Amino acid sequence: MQFKLIINGKTLKGEITIEAVDAAEAEKFFKQYANDNGIDGEWTYDDATKTFTVTE
């Protein structure tokens, strides 16, 4: 399945899409990606669109 991350950071904005087995695997990848890029904010997930959003 495809999952999307929308980044609304103070210094980094954009979107990335990955293939993952389930939402838990996608969330783990996205949170590591955000951590690696210094993004720390509020997370939301929309199951209907398979979209995670992080907002700083």
Rank of each mutant, 00 (worst) to 15 (best):
I18L: 12
A23I: 12
V21T: 14
F52V: 01
Y33T: 07
T11S: 10
N8H: 13
L12V: 15
A34Y: 08
N35V: 10
I7G: 02
E27K: 06
V21M: 15
M1L: 10
Y33W: 09
K10H: 04
T44G: 06
A24I: 12
T44E: 09
K31E: 05
Q32F: 08
K50N: 11
N37D: 03
I7V: 11
K28V: 04
D22A: 03
I7N: 01
F29T: 07
E56N: 10
A24Q: 05
V54P: 00
I39H: 14
T17G: 09
E56T: 14
T11I: 06
T17Y: 10
D22S: 08
I7D: 01
D46H: 09
L12F: 11
D40Y: 14
T55N: 13
K31I: 06
D22F: 09
V54I: 06
N8P: 03
I16D: 02
F29D: 03
N37K: 14
K13A: 14
E27M: 06
T44M: 14
A23E: 09
F3I: 03
F30K: 00
L5N: 01
T55D: 05
N8G: 11
E15V: 13
G38K: 15
K28A: 12
A23F: 14
D40M: 13
A23P: 13
K50L: 10
D40I: 10
M1S: 05
T17E: 14
I16N: 15
Q32L: 08
G41F: 05
I6A: 12
Y45A: 01
A26K: 00
A24F: 09
A26P: 01
G41W: 08
E15C: 04
I16S: 10
L12G: 05
D40F: 13
Y45V: 04
A34C: 02
V21E: 05
A23M: 13
T53G: 04
E19G: 02
F29V: 14
T11M: 07
T49N: 07
I39F: 15
A48I: 15
T49H: 07
E19N: 06
E27F: 14
T51V: 13
T51Q: 09
F29S: 08
K4N: 13
I18A: 13
T49D: 12
N37Y: 09
A34M: 08
E56V: 05
Q2H: 13
G41P: 01
D22R: 03
I39V: 07
T11Y: 12
W43S: 01
K4W: 10
E19Y: 03
T53F: 09
E15W: 13
A48F: 11
F52L: 02
E25H: 10
I39L: 08
M1T: 08
K13L: 09
V54C: 03
F29C: 02
G41L: 03
F52S: 01
T11L: 08
K31A: 07
M1R: 09
E56A: 14
T53S: 14
I7F: 13
E15Y: 14
G14Y: 05
D47C: 05
K50S: 08
E25G: 15
T53H: 10
T49K: 05
D40E: 05
L12R: 09
A48M: 05
E42R: 12
Y45L: 03
T51C: 03
D22G: 12
T51G: 03
T44H: 14
A20K: 03
V54T: 06
A26S: 05
N35S: 09
G14M: 12
E42G: 12
T44C: 03
W43I: 15
F30I: 02
K13P: 15
E15Q: 05
N35R: 13
A34P: 00
N35D: 12
V21L: 13
Y33D: 01
Y33I: 03
K28N: 11
I7A: 06
I7Q: 02
T49E: 14
K10Y: 13
E42C: 08
E27S: 04
G14R: 12
Q32R: 11
G38E: 11
K31M: 09
I6N: 09
A48E: 10
T17R: 08
G38C: 04
A20R: 04
I18C: 03
I6R: 07
G38N: 04
G14D: 05
L12E: 07
F52H: 04
I39M: 07
N35G: 14
A24L: 09
K28M: 07
E25R: 03
Q32G: 06
V54S: 01
K50T: 13
F3Y: 10
I6H: 14
W43C: 01
I16H: 04
E15M: 06
L12N: 08
F52R: 00
D47P: 10
D47W: 05
I7R: 02
G9V: 11
N37A: 13
A23H: 15
A20M: 07
A26M: 01
I16A: 12
A24S: 05
Q32V: 11
K31T: 04
A20H: 06
